[in-house]
């Protein structure tokens, strides 16, 4: 009985060199990209936005500066159903 094809282990003939190259590229590209992403995740994730966090704490800010100044998302403490922001102290001249 002949062994299954997967168990045959002989030297690759010359026409298979391209296939070997393709395999090498596929394996090395996957491993390199995977390692690069893992290294970056490990090295960078520990100290992200430290400066922004420090200033947020030093100025006791209530929200990050991702929205325009004067908007309720930027200043959540100004949001109140009974207060019209157009006439509030400090916001008097805001658009």
């Amino acid at each position: 009985m002949r062994p299954p094809i997967a168990q045959l282990n002989h030297q690759c003939p010359a026409p298979c060199r391209g296939a070997q190259r393709l395999l090498a590229i596929a394996i090395s590209a996957s491993v390199l990209l995977g390692l690069a992403a893992t290294a970056d995740l490990t090295l960078r994730s520990a100290r992200q936005n430290d400066s922004a966090n420090s200033w947020m704490k030093a100025m006791t800010l209530s929200a990050p500066a991702l929205w325009p100044a004067g908007s309720p998302m930027r200043h959540p403490e100004t949001l109140h159903p009974g207060v019209d922001l157009r006439f509030s102290a400090g916001l008097v001249a805001a658009p």
């Binding site: 966090n53 990050p64 403490e77 019209d84």
Partner: peptide
């Protein structure tokens, strides 16, 4: 994650005075 970390630095409570005219000092 970014917002969560930034908001972690924010004060727990903010007290604002309010009167008939809106926010007051």
């Amino acid at each position: 994650a970014t917002w969560a970390r930034l908001m972690d630095q924010a004060p727990d409570l903010v007290v604002r005075r309010i009167d008939a005219g809106g926010w007051a000092p």
